[in-house]
Amino acid sequence: MPFIQITMIAGRTEEQKRALLAAVSQATTDSIGAPPETVRAWIVEVPPTDIAVAGDTHADRRARADQS
Rank of each mutant, 00 (worst) to 15 (best):
I4E: 00
M8H: 08
R18H: 12
E37M: 12
P47T: 11
A63R: 14
T38K: 09
A34D: 05
L20P: 00
A10G: 06
I6M: 08
P35Y: 10
T29R: 02
M1Y: 04
V53N: 05
A63N: 08
R18I: 04
P47Y: 03
A19G: 05
I6D: 01
G55D: 07
T57R: 06
T13L: 05
Q67L: 07
T7F: 06
P2T: 04
D60R: 11
V44Y: 09
T57V: 09
I51D: 01
I32G: 07
P35D: 15
L21I: 14
R12A: 01
R62I: 12
V46G: 03
S25P: 00
S31F: 14
V39L: 11
A19K: 13
A27L: 15
A10D: 05
R12Q: 08
E15V: 10
T38V: 14
T13D: 03
R12C: 00
E37K: 13
A52M: 01
P48L: 02
Q16D: 08
R40H: 12
R64S: 07
E14Q: 15
L20Y: 01
M8Q: 11
P2W: 01
A34Y: 05
P47H: 10
A65W: 08
E14K: 15
D60I: 08
E15R: 13
A22I: 05
D50Q: 11
D30M: 08
M8V: 09
P48F: 02
M1G: 11
A41G: 02
A59K: 07
L21F: 05
G55A: 09
I4M: 00
D60W: 03
E15S: 10
I4C: 01
R61C: 06
T49E: 13
I4T: 01
P2D: 02
S25Y: 01
R62L: 14
Q16M: 10
E14F: 04
F3H: 09
E15H: 07
T13W: 05
G11N: 09
G33A: 11
H58T: 13
G55H: 08
S31T: 15
A41W: 00
D56T: 12
A23C: 06
Q5L: 09
L20N: 00
R40F: 13
E37Y: 13
M1S: 11
V39W: 07
P47K: 14
E45W: 08
T7R: 12
D56K: 15
S68M: 05
P2M: 03
V44E: 10
D50L: 09
T49I: 02
I32V: 15
R12N: 03
R40P: 00
P48E: 03
D56H: 14
Q67S: 08
A27P: 06
E15I: 06
G11V: 08
A34T: 10
I51S: 02
R18P: 01
I4P: 00
S25F: 02
E37Q: 14
R61N: 04
A41T: 07
I32R: 07
Q16C: 08
V44M: 10
V24N: 02
L20D: 00
D50H: 15
P36N: 13
R62S: 13
E14Y: 03
T28G: 04
Q26C: 04
